[in-house]
Each structure stands twice: as C-alpha cells, then as structure tokens.
C-alpha cells in the first residue's frame, strides 16, 4: 500500500473545501431529511424528538428503522440493537481510514469521525488513496451532509405533506448512485477487483439468507479477508 508518512491535513481551508465539494450531493440528502421529518411527524414523534434525533444520530437508515418501532412505549434494547446493527458498517468504514487517522493525535483523530457517514467517508477515502492527504472531505463534507439532513428534517416537520413518496422522485437512489460513482472513481488493483467480487458475492448471499442489514458487514469482511490472505496483490 502507499503508506502515508505524514498526518493528513485537518485545517479550516481543507474543511471548507470538503464542505463545498459535498454540498451539491447534500442537497439531495436534504430532500431525504425532509421525507424523514414528514414520516416522523406522521408516526407521532414530537418536533423536539425529531430534530434532536436528526442532529445527534445523523444516520438515515437507522432513523427510519426507529420509526418502525416507535409507539406510546418503545422497547429500548431492540431499538438500540437495531441501531447498532444498521450502523455497524461504520465500524468498517472507520477502520479503513485508520492507516491515515492513526497519524493524527487522538483529539483530532476522533473529532474527525464525529460526522462519519457514507458519502463523506467514501469521498475522503478516495482522496487519501489517491494521495490527497487530507480529511477535509470527511469533516467538511460531514458538516454539509449534517446541515442539509437537519434542515431537511426541520422543513419536513414544519411543512409536512409536500413530498409523500421520496422514492417516486428517485431520491432514495442518491446514496446508491454516489457509492457507485466512488467505486468507479476509486483506485483499482488486482486486489481491489478480486475483493469486489468476493465481497459482492458474500453480500448477496447474506442479503438473501442472513438477517436484515447484515449484508454490508458480511461483504466488507469477506472482501477484506481476500486482502489479508493475498496482501501482495495490492500493488498496481
């Protein structure tokens, strides 16, 4: 691997740049936030619960799943278990950033992870793998996503009813299309291609036969195993 020798840049300028780079995509995410706000109002959550949830949890799929379990009384342990299961992919995502983040002191290292989510992780990892040694996309992009997600939720709470079905607008495809564009823009070696195949097959099998939401973990770990078994394939 192209081992980084220096700590990644974590400056205001880098953060600002990351913010602007992910702002266009974040606008789509805002529409998704709007859909969440609306669905949450219809489920019966209070405005405070919705806005605090969007601000502090900041994880779309897990928040929608929480709505499924919400009522006058909510089972605490199943709610937490579901949240952990859906967001467990963040464990893997954070781990992939470790070769660079370990060079930062613990304070900035963990601060940079506070807003870790799919899109800013993928963009930051592409940057790092291509030699742009900065966490600007992770932090700045995270701020852009967080802001639009929260503002979208707020609009959903205030003016619900404008968008009944986000899928009809194709908005549910934003993350999928973004992830695909990051796969295609990413660095390719014999190792990554073999890992895609193994990881993809494992994810598909898990999606069919294992419990819900396990496919990302299973696919990621299976692909990672390929890299652990054949570390030599990682050279270009």
């Amino acid at each position: 691997m192209n081992g980084p020798a220096q700590a990644p840049e974590f400056s205001l300028a880098a953060v600002r740049q990351g913010f602007w780079r992910l702002l266009p995509l974040s606008l789509f995410v805002g529409v998704f936030g709007l859909a969440f706000g609306l669905a949450a109002v219809q489920t019966g959550l209070s405005a405070a619960e919705i806005l605090v949830m969007s601000a502090t949890v900041f994880a779309g799929t897990a928040q929608f799943a929480a709505l499924e379990m919400w009522g006058a009384e909510v089972p605490l342990l199943p709610l937490l278990a579901t949240t952990l299961a859906i967001n467990a992919r963040m464990l893997l995502m954070g781990a992939t950033l470790y070769p660079w983040l370990r060079l930062l002191p613990p304070g900035p290292r963990y601060r940079s992870l506070i807003l870790l989510s799919d899109a800013n992780w993928a963009m930051c990892l592409n940057d790092l793998q291509q030699g742009r040694n900065t966490v600007g996309a992770l932090v700045g992009g995270g701020i852009a996503l967080w802001l639009t997600w929260w503002l979208g939720s707020l609009v959903g709470v205030l003016f619900g009813g404008q968008i009944r079905d986000p899928a009809a607008l194709g908005v549910d495809m934003v993350m999928g299309c973004f992830m695909l564009s990051m796969v295609l823009a990413g660095r390719r070696t014999r190792l990554t291609v073999l890992a895609w195949l193994v990881g993809g097959l494992a994810a598909w099998a898990a999606w069919r036969w294992l419990p819900e939401h396990s496919h990302v973990i299973v696919g990621g770990l299976a692909g990672g195993l390929v890299g652990a078994l054949f570390p030599g394939l990682g050279q270009k």
Binding site: R89, M93, T96, V183, V198, G200, H215, A222, G227
Partner: peptide
C-alpha cells in the same frame, strides 16, 4: 479497535480490500 493492534502488511491488505468491498456490498442488493 484498529488502534489496539499493530498494523502489519496483512492488516493493511485487509483494510484496503475491505474499503471497496463495503461500497460494493451496499450496492449489490
């Protein structure tokens, strides 16, 4: 968790290969 273990070549291979696989795994279904 990664910070608890020393990072050798196999660990780096694991992390590198896992990165793309996570993206693909999201897309497969």
């Amino acid at each position: 968790i990664m910070s608890l273990f020393p990072l050798g070549p196999r660990g780096e291979g694991f992390i590198n290969a896992m990165a793309g696989s996570v993206l693909v795994a999201v897309l497969v279904p």
